[in-house]
C-alpha cells in the first residue's frame, strides 16, 4: 500500500544525508515498526512521507508510492488532498502539537472540514464518535475544552481521534507514547492495536524502544544512521538479530531485572 523506494534526504546546508537510501513497504492493514536510536532518521522519514518536509528545506530523492501515486512527484494540490485524508500523523508531544487557543472539537474535526462537505452538525457528530472511538469518556464535555484543560494521555487520545476521523489509509505514529507515563503508554498502544484490527488501518509505528514495537508490530525495520539495517519479523529480530546494531539495540533495552539491579 505504501512503498518507499531508495529514499534520500539531505538538509540544505548540511554535508551529509539524514536518510541514505532506505526502502520499505507497509502492507494493507499492517503495523510496521520503525526503530532506531535517537538521530537515526525516523522522524525525518515520517516527515517526508507526510509531506511535512519539502524541497524548501531539504533535497529529497526516491519514490514514495501510496496506492499507485508517487507522492514525491505529485503536485502540491494532490499533496494537500492526501494530507489529513489518506495519511494522518500522531506526534510525540500531544500538548505542543495542539493549537492552544482552539477548542478540542474544531481541532478534531479539522480533517473533515478540509476534505469533506459535511456541515457543522455532521462534523460534530463524527468528532464525538471519533473521541469515543479513541476511548474518551464524556466526549461532549471534552469537545468544548481547551488543550491545557486535559492531561497528556487524554490529549494523545484526542490527537488519535483527530487522526482517525477521516478514516485514513495510513497512520504515521511518531513515538506517540514516549511523552506519556507507563500505564497510559500501554493503553494508547492497545488503542492503536484495536483501531488497526477493527478498521484495517495501516500504521507506521515509530519508536526507539524495541520492546514497545514488539507489543504492537509483526514486522519491524531497524534504522541506523539513515540506513535500514534489517527488516524482519519482530520476534525473529528480537531473538535472532542479524545486524550488530540490532543486537546492541536489544542489549540497550532496560529489562526489569536490569532495572532492579540498579
Amino acid at each position: 500500500m505504501l512503498e518507499v523506494r531508495d529514499l534520500h534526504v539531505q538538509f540544505h546546508g548540511v554535508d551529509h544525508e539524514a536518510v541514505r537510501g532506505i526502502s520499505f513497504t507497509v502492507e494493507n492493514g499492517e503495523i510496521l515498526g520503525l526503530v532506531g536510536e535517537s538521530g537515526s532518521g525516523k522522524t525525518v522519514t515520517a516527515m517526508v512521507i507526510s509531506a511535512l518536509l519539502g524541497a524548501d528545506r531539504a533535497a529529497i530523492r526516491g519514490r514514495i508510492v501510496l496506492d499507485g501515486v508517487d507522492l514525491l512527484s505529485a503536485a502540491g494540490s494532490t499533496i494537500h488532498q492526501v494530507q489529513g485524508k489518506d495519511i494522518c500523523v500522531v506526534f510525540q508531544e500531544p500538548m505542543s502539537a495542539m493549537d492552544p487557543v482552539m477548542r478540542i472539537g474544531p481541532q478534531v474535526e479539522e480533517c473533515l472540514r478540509l476534505h469533506t462537505k459535511l456541515n457543522k452538525a455532521e462534523r460534530r457528530a463524527r468528532a464525538l464518535q471519533a473521541l469515543r472511538d479513541a476511548e474518551l469518556q464524556d466526549a461532549e464535555a471534552i469537545y468544548e475544552k481547551y488543550p491545557h484543560e486535559l492531561s497528556g494521555g487524554m490529549l494523545q487520545r484526542v490527537m488519535i481521534a483527530a487522526a482517525i476521523i477521516s478514516r485514513p489509509k495510513l497512520l504515521l505514529a511518531d513515538e506517540p507514547t514516549t511523552a506519556l507515563d507507563v500505564t497510559v503508554q500501554a493503553q494508547i498502544l492497545a488503542l492503536l492495536k484495536r483501531l488497526n484490527e477493527e478498521r484495517g488501518m495501516s500504521i507506521l509505528f515509530i519508536s526507539h524502544n524495541l520492546n514497545v514495537v514488539r507489543k504492537l508490530c509483526r514486522r519491524v525495520a531497524v534504522m541506523e544512521k539513515g540506513r535500514i539495517v534489517e527488516t524482519a519479523d519482530t520476534e525473529a529480530v528480537f531473538y535472532h538479530p542479524q545486524a550488530d546494531y540490532t543486537k546492541r539495540l536489544i542489549a540497550a533495552i532496560p529489562t526489569r531485572r536490569k532495572l532492579h539491579d540498579g
Partner: peptide, 26 residues
Amino acid sequence: DKDYVRTAYSRGNSRWQALYRHVLRN
C-alpha cells in the same frame, strides 16, 4: 515554528489556511 502549525499542515491546511485559522489568533 511551533508544533501545532506542523499538525495543521499534516491535516492538509495550506500555509495560508494554517496562518489564518491557527497562527493569527496565537
